[in-house]
Design a protein around this nucleic acid. Structure first.
Lengths: 239, 239
DNA sequence: AGCGATTTCAAAGTTTTGTTTGACGACGCC
DNA sequence: GGCGTCGTCAAACAAAACTTTGAAATCGCT
């Protein structure tokens, strides 16, 4: 019969799956042993090789499940009529989907880990990240059509950075500020959206480039002399 | 006849060290084998156990070196006279230190990896992250003394998020936007500082809470009905 | 109840990995 | 030159990991 349809048939398969997801998310592909997984699942050591071919395939399956679940949760259409509204919508939807307490938290952890450190299991950037960043890019382009690509890219990565951070490095934030209450997801989403919009609006129409003519300054002024652009900054910083 | 130092510091020890840093940063503690390291270093397999006690100790040593180097580079005093200036200074100093091409890039990668996924080797949050985030917090408190702690914390984590992202997930940004030139460090630092300041200034004096009384809306309006809080947001979004 | 397919199990396999060993050579010093 | 220390090497050793095996247990079905 089918894999999951047997009356209890794959109860262990499912428990195995869950345990694997958790431990893989916590310790990574190489840091996890099959003994750890089977022990947490209360199953025999050979069960992994029976239900999945081998360890790596189990990892791939777990990743694929997390990926699919996350994809359907974040690819719903945006209904707001203003670009600002759609940006808020997208940020809020993404964060609530990622931090939804109903979702096993190993899913996002596993995805983040795979993003930070890709294995040959599955290419996430193409399927998960690129579409999202493209949507983000388009919305931001609507809000600020005048900005050069690079500035827009920096603004978009700002959102991605916060996303990854609050999902993957949440424990870090807690340890950095132990005595501050962690915000609920809605507050967090609002803050990220507010910050992003404020930053986007605040960017100057003529972005601070070293010189328009010089060929794409790979390593332009660098760290030494912060002298010249100071004046403009002072003006912007003034309340 | 040795280069680095004759009696004590064999050249292999240093080459071993370098190779270990690179591979550890790339594949993690568990994903790295001693054979990989010694092979890249052009040394014998036993050399790791000779020069360092064992694999884990080598990992700890590499981490400690990266940590020390990074610490001295980021703990210089801030000289600007305005809090805005000090914020810019701090962001710029941190990013240039982390992305300095003179610094072996395995150092920051290893540190980031250890932050995301601590091993028993060294506690980085206490020695590296907490002081930095405390400085950041104090500066931001100067700029916006009226904000509640949580909002300030969110703003600070915004900086940390970008920091981690541009250091650790740089490859992700490149893959998300393949056809946009990566900015040089100075441009990046300016963007982060600008965004942070704009976001900080843009935060409302009374931060947007769902309702003062209701117990921390875990899954409040969520993605479905963006109805009620819309009004206030519309006002802020309006140009 | 009986039978076949599926699932579980303890034990043994094979591979990979970290560590140790003992010999060999280079070097500095008396 | 003799001699001891230090560094290097190939090989062996030991531990840990992944995988396989064959039998026993379970389940679905007639």
């Amino acid at each position: 019969m089918n894999e999951t349809s047997n009356v209890n048939g794959s109860a262990t398969r499912e428990k195995l799956f869950e345990a694997a997801g958790e431990i893989f998310a916590e310790k990574g592909l190489h840091g996890t042993t099959i003994r750890d997984i089977t022990q947490r699942a209360g199953a025999n050591i050979a069960s992994v090789n029976y239900h999945f071919q081998d360890k790596f395939n189990l990892y791939t399956e777990a990743l694929r499940r997390a990926h699919g679940s996350m994809l359907t949760a974040t690819s719903m259409p945006l209904t707001a009529d203003t670009p600002e509204g759609r940006l808020r919508e997208m940020i809020s939807a993404g964060l609530t989907a990622a931090l939804d307490p109903a979702r096993p938290k190993w899913q996002v952890q596993l995805l983040s880990r795979e993003l930070a450190q890709p294995t040959p299991a599955l290419d996430l950037t193409d399927d998960l990240m690129r579409p999202a960043s493209q949507r983000l890019w388009n919305i931001m382009r609507e809000i600020r059509p005048d900005l050069p690509d690079q500035q827009l890219m920096l603004a978009a990565t700002g959102v991605a950075a916060r996303f990854v951070f609050h999902v993957y490095h949440a424990h870090l934030a807690r340890r950095m500020f132990p005595d501050v209450d962690v915000p609920d997801t809605q507050t967090l989403a609002e803050h990220v959206a507010d910050s992003t919009l404020a930053a986007l609006r605040g960017l100057p129409a003529t972005p601070a480039r070293t010189r328009p003519g010089s060929a794409a300054g790979k390593r332009a002024s660098a760290k030494k002399g912060p002298g010249r652009t100071r004046q403009r900054r002072k003006e912007r910083d003034a309340k």
